[in-house]
Design a protein around this nucleic acid. Structure first.
Length: 495
RNA sequence: GCCAAGGUGGCAGAGUCCGGCCUAACGCAGCGGCCUGCAGAGCCGCCCAUCGCCGGUUCAAAUCCGGCCCUUGGCUCCA
């Protein structure tokens, strides 16, 4: 059973075979740090994170490189705004820090490196020089353009025909370019006032033109696409196994990246191109520029890690997902079901009724079936919804068996718990750790105390008082459940 | 206009590559029952789809072929 992935380049689902059978070189086209990250970014991150985790589960050493674009006119447009910073670099730094916080909060595995454009100007210049020397690029008024006509398979990734492409880049570039589809590798001077004006949020601030660097063609800034080629080669290799990013980047960004990389090295840039589909809000793409977004930190604060990850993983990465309150609510329920079942299984495993001599065939079969179903789903182009379904089916059997029998199969229960942790936590990145959904410490002791008070009331038949306590605790985010073994509770988000 | 992805039950969303186990997965919502002082959780069961439309291939199609309609994304910054 091998992994199959949908390759944008060929348009087909093909068996995944890395160059080195033991490792995977993965480059993820990361964020332009000009604003807080939103759920759309989180969706792609979480899916790429699960890909990373699954590849490791399959035994590959994953070398994951993910850039931050910190040189960009949208960043320049925000210089001086509020207390974001008084230079392009300072603004970018602030958002990089926030973004890393968001990533950590989403429980993403760390990349090997998070290279930034501003740190790779020499590599970018080198690459542009090679392209000029190789006849794939030309200088014009201090700017350098890639000659699309010099790369015969230009347009193959995005299925564009050269004669259908109207023009790329800003209007003022047109007169400098030989072919309208040629794109900038290096741009003379700073960011133009028009470009800055287009993205400004605060008109009262003195506009900046951003940083510039010395180059063989004079002062200037790197073009948007060249960065990923340069950083990918600098930190991975000329040829990588997987290039992944959002579907909105296929053209022109990835098309150009591929063209310039392969023109420079003469070798395949990436063997597999994976694209995550977008996240929509009211049937419209969620995006910073449209302003219709929910930030990652807001979403996490409202629903918690497990619900958000479950929500984002409830469809496949390569299909569009639409935000809706009811879809999130569904994810909340699914995530809680997994959490509760895990908790219950652990309690049973550690309790006196888990016996080594008991053999529960149904539970054992269910664990085997789950592991197989989960693996099959993940190997089928990372079908996370199917993987989640497998785990939820196991949850039903676990609950059913725990309900039905007084004594439990210790070994089977242990494997079931391990399956939850290995797949649910290890692969899907959920967290079943104690206190994952709330605070621990003194709060627990206080809740225990109130539960004792409530139990006394119940024993005395004062249900009115008992229900009142339950209702009030619930409003504070403490869910009480009465069971045969006494009351239990879970800390939730509260109101 | 060109390119791409998609149209499956009230919602959400697999399955479509390799046609039959799909009388359509997992789940949310809803309904009934068990359990419970009650509630919740859990369990058992039920309800709701012939898979955008038309035609074709086939013993057999959500799955293959052709045409059409619609939605979204890209062609300007964007995961």
């Amino acid at each position: 059973m091998t992994l199959r992935v949908e390759n944008t380049l060929t348009g087909e689902r093909e068996p995944f075979e890395p160059q080195d059978p033991d490792s995977v070189l993965l480059y993820y086209c990361g964020l332009t740090v000009s604003d807080r990250a939103h759920l759309g970014h989180a969706r792609t991150w979480v899916h790429v994170d699960v890909m990373h985790r699954w590849l490791e589960f399959l035994g590959y050493a994953v070398r994951h490189v993910e850039n931050f674009t910190d040189v960009n006119e949208k960043i320049v447009a925000r210089v001086g705004e509020n207390d974001l910073g008084d230079s392009e670099n300072a603004v970018a730094r602030g958002f990089v820090e926030k973004t890393l916080d968001d990533m950590r909060a989403l429980n993403l595995k760390r990349a090997e490196v998070y290279p930034r454009v501003s740190e790779h100007i020499p590599e970018i210049i080198d690459l542009v020089e090679r392209l000029v020397e190789g006849g794939h690029a030309y200088e014009s008024n201090g700017s350098v353009y890639f000659d699309v006509g010099s790369f015969e398979s230009y347009g193959e990734l995005s299925n564009q025909r050269l004669d259908e492409i109207e023009s790329q880049g800003e209007p003022d570039e047109r007169s400098e370019k030989r072919h309208p589809a040629d794109f900038a590798l290096w741009k003379a001077g700073g960011v133009s006032p028009e470009a800055v004006a287009e993205h400004r949020h605060d008109e009262s601030v003195e506009p900046s033109s951003g940083q510039t660097w010395e180059s063989p063609w004079g002062e200037g800034r790197p073009g948007w696409h060249i960065e990923c080629s340069a950083m990918s080669m600098a930190h991975l290799d000329k040829t990588i196994d997987i290039h992944v990013g959002g579907r909105d980047l296929v053209f022109p960004h990835h098309e150009n990246e591929r063209a310039q990389s392969e023109a420079a090295t003469g070798e395949t840039f990436s063997n597999y191109w994976l694209h995550a589909d977008l996240f929509a809000m009211d049937d419209e793409k969620m995006s910073s520029s449209l302003g219709n977004f929910i930030t990652v930190d807001e979403a996490l604060a409202d629903y918690g890690l497990n619900a958000i990850r479950t929500f984002l993983l409830s469809g496949s990465y390569n299909s569009t997902q639409t935000y809706s309150e009811s879809a999130i609510q569904e994810a909340v329920e699914r995530a809680e079901r997994l959490e509760r079942t895990h908790e219950r299984a652990v309690a049973a495993l550690d309790g006196p009724d888990a016996r080594t001599k008991v053999e529960d065939g149904r539970l054992r079969d269910a664990v085997d079936d789950t592991r197989e179903a989960f693996t099959t789903a993940m190997n089928d182009d990372f079908n996370t919804r199917g993987a989640l379904a497998a785990l939820l089916e196991l949850a039903t059997v676990i609950n059913s068996r725990l309900d039905a029998e007084d004594e439990h199969d210790y070994r089977a229960l242990k494997r079931a718990v391990e399956t939850f942790e290995e797949f649910g936590e290890g692969v899907l990145g959920l967290s079943f750790a104690e206190g994952a959904t709330g605070e621990v410490g003194i709060a627990d002791e206080l809740v225990e105390l109130l539960l004792d008070v409530r139990e006394s009331a119940r024993e005395a038949g004062d249900y009115e008082r008992a229900d009142e306590l339950r209702t009030e605790l619930e409003a504070l985010g403490v869910e009480i459940q009465d069971t045969d073994d006494g009351p239990t509770y879970r800390l939730g988000a509260g109101e």
